[in-house]
């Protein structure tokens, strides 16, 4: 994660649905529960949410259906206007943009992928992918060239002239991904992109997605209701419930130190050894001896399973990405995680 100013910064954002949200927000008290609001005919889709997304970071928003994760991402892309709070994108206040500026922002900086693809049924693959380029008025040859590039990027070469109905679900979502990438956005929103797909295809698409991300290095907000998917992809995870963010942290921290009861329940069934990295539980050296061959901080405890069992050292040194020693791993503590 970088030190510069965050790309997306969301401060105390509220999104309330109901007959007169502003009025309702003005009279709201801090301890009012979700049910209390509902009893009065209001739903807090997003409740006092503050999150930052740094450049090149992948933030995964996780929650069950109705938890407000889709609403939050729609506030970040201003498909919904927030009721209160502020959201800035690259330092620009999203709420104060005029319609024209907003359109311009979407044409230059944002891309979004939808759960049920949102493909235009009357356009071919190529025309769908070129759609955002067409909207911003790029000339025909250029947009065709760019569209062909992205279509190839997502592995759909040879299907350019197909119509969406002639493609499988996985292929349709590839078109959705290609379309969102056509304008080379800096910020990439993905709203449960793989939820509508079969488990096997989903896995394949996740790999594909990781490959793309490695190549492109975009700032990503990814939504899912699948905790495994979140753990697999995320730099950080924000877990939502009833519109509020319960915890926002790295996967390791969420698994190791769940902040609330709700998060604990989520993490209970997770095989922690597969999530926690050596770097996350390494302790500073603090004068303890550094002995023998170090392990890389990026390895999960499971990756290190054999070593942890076979090794006799109490403390195993851990190296960070640049090769320097960053601390020691307590072998017993690691074994506890592995054997729990």
């Amino acid at each position: 994660m970088t030190d510069s100013q965050p790309v997306i910064s969301c401060r105390n954002a509220w999104k309330i649905f109901g007959p007169d949200p502003e009025q309702f927000y003005a009279n709201i008290s801090a301890d009012m529960s979700f049910e209390d609001m509902r009893a009065q005919g209001y739903i807090a889709g997003v409740r006092d949410v503050s999150v930052d997304v740094a450049k090149g970071e992948m933030l995964v928003i996780m929650g069950l259906s109705g938890s407000g994760k889709s609403t939050l991402v729609r506030c970040l892309s201003r498909l919904h206007d927030i009721t209160a709070g502020s959201i800035t994108v690259d330092g620009q206040d999203l709420g104060s943009l005029s319609e024209k500026e907003l359109i311009e922002l979407r044409r230059r900086k944002m891309g979004m992928v939808f759960q049920s693809f949102g493909l235009l049924p009357h356009r071919t693959v190529l025309e769908n992918v070129a759609f955002p380029l067409e909207m911003r008025g790029q000339d025909k040859h250029e947009r065709r060239k760019r569209a062909l590039e992205v279509v190839e990027l997502v592995g759909l070469s040879g299907r350019e002239e197909y119509f969406p109905r002639e493609l499988s679900g996985g292929q349709q979502q590839r078109v959705g991904i290609a379309r969102s990438l056509a304008i080379e956005p800096d910020i990439w929103f993905l709203d449960e992109p793989f939820s509508a797909l079969d488990p096997l295809i989903r896995r394949e698409m996740q790999d594909e997605f990781l490959r793309l991300q490695e190549m492109l290095g975009k700032t990503i907000v990814f939504i899912t209701h699948d905790f495994d998917e979140a753990l697999r992809l995320a730099d950080r995870i924000a877990i939502m419930k009833d519109g509020a963010v319960e915890q926002c942290d790295t996967p390791d921290q969420i698994v190791l130190n769940p902040a609330t009861e709700y998060v604990t329940k989520f993490t209970e069934d997770i095989d922690k050894a597969r999530v926690v990295h050596a770097g996350a539980i390494a302790k500073p050296v603090n004068g303890e001896p550094v002995m023998g061959t170090p392990v890389s901080s990026g390895k999960t405890i499971q990756d290190l399973a054999r070593l942890l069992v076979d090794d006799t050292r109490d403390l195993i040194p851990v190296t960070s990405d640049d090769g320097t020693i960053m601390g020691n791993l307590d072998r017993v503590e690691a074994l506890d995680i592995l054997l729990r």
Partner: peptide, 18 residues
Amino acid sequence: VSPDIVEAGQMSGSTRWQ
């Protein structure tokens, strides 16, 4: 018209007429 298609259009930066 399905909301996904509408939102996809908006996120593509379409004007009202588009």
